[in-house]
Computed example of a mutant assay.
Amino acid sequence: MSGYRGRFAPTPSGPLHFGSLVAALASFLDARRAGGEWRLRLEDIDPPRCPPGAADTILRQLEAFGLHWDGPVSWQHERDDAYAAALERLKAAGLAYPCSCSRKQWRDYPVYPGWCRHGVCDPAKPMAWRLRSDLGPRPVVWPDRLFGEQRFDPAELGDVVLKRKDGLWAYQLAVVVDDADQGISDVVRGVDLLDNTPWQRQLQQALGYPEPRYLHLPLILGDDGQKLSKQNLAPPLPEVDDAVRPLLHAALAALDQAPPRELSTAPVAEQLQWGIRHWDVARLRAAPHRQTDATIP
């Protein structure tokens, strides 16, 4: 094994769709091409969004497409103590603060204006915990493997929530702690998460964590021009082999790897071996892709 360790980290709010497949496949191929590990993490820290059975469906879908992960599945709902310890470190460093403000109160502002930074506005109300984005390194600069140098001022993005008013952990803190604890060296994910990276880099530096490399992938759009997503009712991935083979081929095409047409009927394992041998990030185009553009004519 090389020092490469990647991951796929879906939220089990519903079954995977074609856009999910493209992201999972890219991270899988990138890890296997590097001779590294590929881990699976279920980001289930928001129970109301995660219906019973959704996680099991995701596991079956990944197995149907031959995307077999290394090691045990990691579950965020088991990680409360790790997130709490990280938040305490941020509090001690003066980088996290309690906030009673509601979104309705600051709806006329583009981002939360930091009203509670120097004291809670209404101590009688439930409180979230936010990151002091103005105290970390600014700007945050990093090289994306597809989109090139990225430069953001996190203070212009606002003080992101680390722990919600309802007591649930927020994505930004959980993902940073998990990536560090799992030793993730490379993050491959959709470009819709690119502007989350400045907060995550701030948290990594504040907590003394290693900073992974990032590869953000172009969006996959549906026929209506909207991003494929569960919210937009994207169709779930099939689990039957005859339907899986052409869709896996389409995902390789959506990643600009130009798989030969005859590969579309090949067994899943053969398609993945071809994908690993030919995986080339330099082929990726930054423009959004339509799912129909990747299908077999």
Rank of each mutant, 00 (worst) to 15 (best):
A170L: 01
G208D: 13
P210M: 12
V188E: 02
G208Q: 15
G225H: 10
D178M: 02
H216G: 04
P218K: 13
Q202F: 04
V191E: 15
E211W: 01
Q182H: 14
L219P: 03
G225I: 13
D223C: 07
L219T: 14
G167H: 03
T197Q: 09
D179T: 09
N196I: 10
G225A: 10
V175L: 03
H216D: 05
V176Y: 02
D223I: 11
L168S: 12
L203V: 11
I184S: 00
Q226D: 10
A170D: 03
Q172G: 07
V175Q: 01
I220H: 08
L173D: 07
L203M: 11
D192C: 05
D195C: 07
V187N: 07
A174F: 04
P218F: 05
E211G: 06
L193R: 01
R189V: 08
P210K: 11
A206H: 07
D179P: 12
Q182A: 15
R213H: 14
D192I: 04
Y209S: 05
L173I: 09
I184K: 06
Q205A: 15
Q204C: 03
Y209F: 15
W199E: 01
V177W: 05
I220Q: 09
L215P: 07
E211S: 00
H216Q: 04
G183V: 03
G208C: 14
G225Y: 15
Y214S: 01
Q204T: 10
D192F: 00
